Amino acid sequence: MEVEMKIRTLMMDPVTQMPIVVLRDLSGNTILPIWVGVYEANAIALEIEKINTPRPMTHDLIRTLLQGMDTKVNRIVVSDLKDDTFFAVIWLEKDGQLISIDSRPSDALAIALRTDSPIYVDENVLKNSRMSSSQEKGQGEELRRWLENLNEEDFGRYKM
């Protein structure tokens, strides 16, 4: 089973100073933080803030290629979590046929934003993420509690 989610915010981890994409389900009850690299965060931030670049970025190029091939992004799915690494699948639709493409979650999210495609997370990923975070000690658990208790005014902008 998959849970539809939206990108809630893009922020910096106060402990590691690495970017975090925070996904939240549509009911607002579940969050999933995914740590991403700086370049990937910038690609996501550019689209969130609707900043145009003088030349197409990689994810813009992918969107243009898909459009040129009359292929639609059906959805993206954060599909697995192994050894603290998230995995994703981009589901493409071409001539009524679904095609799955293995992807890093950060790339899948950047493409979903550019193609206005839905974002899903497999229920097992949410469950395993909670289990692994409940086993963490100290700062990891503190960060999770902090993320879960954030209010609208607490969200700062990711600075590129």
Rank of each mutant, 00 (worst) to 15 (best):
E49P: 06
E49R: 15
K50M: 05
I51F: 08
I51H: 06
N52W: 06
N52A: 13
N52P: 02
T53V: 04
P54C: 03
M57S: 03
M57A: 12
M57P: 04
H59W: 00
D60N: 13
D60I: 02
D60H: 03
L61I: 12
I62K: 05
L65Y: 12
L65S: 09
L65M: 14
L65I: 14
L65T: 13
Q67F: 11
G68Y: 10
M69W: 12
M69I: 03
D70Q: 15
D70E: 15
T71N: 07
T71H: 10
T71I: 04
K72Y: 04
K72T: 09
V73A: 06
N74Q: 13
R75I: 00
I76G: 08
I76K: 05
S79A: 06
S79E: 06
S79L: 01
S79Y: 01
D80F: 08
D80A: 14
L81R: 03
K82I: 06
K82L: 09
K82A: 10
T85I: 13
F86E: 01
F87Y: 15
A88M: 07
A88V: 07
A88Q: 08
I90M: 00
I90G: 07
W91I: 14
L92S: 05
E93N: 13
E93I: 09
K94A: 06
K94N: 11
K94L: 06
K94H: 15
K94S: 14
D95Q: 15
Q97K: 14
L98A: 14
I99Y: 02
S103H: 05
S103T: 05
R104K: 11
R104Q: 05
P105D: 00
P105A: 11
S106I: 00
S106A: 08
S106H: 02
D107G: 01
D107I: 00
I111V: 11
I111T: 07
A112W: 10
A112D: 00
L113E: 05
R114E: 07
T115S: 02
D116H: 15
S117H: 04
P118N: 08
P118G: 09
P118Y: 03
P118T: 04
P118D: 04
I119D: 04
Y120M: 05
V121R: 00
D122K: 03
D122S: 06
E123D: 12
E123N: 04
E123S: 01
V125H: 00
V125N: 01
S129N: 12
S129L: 08
S129F: 14
M131D: 13
S132L: 15
S133Q: 12
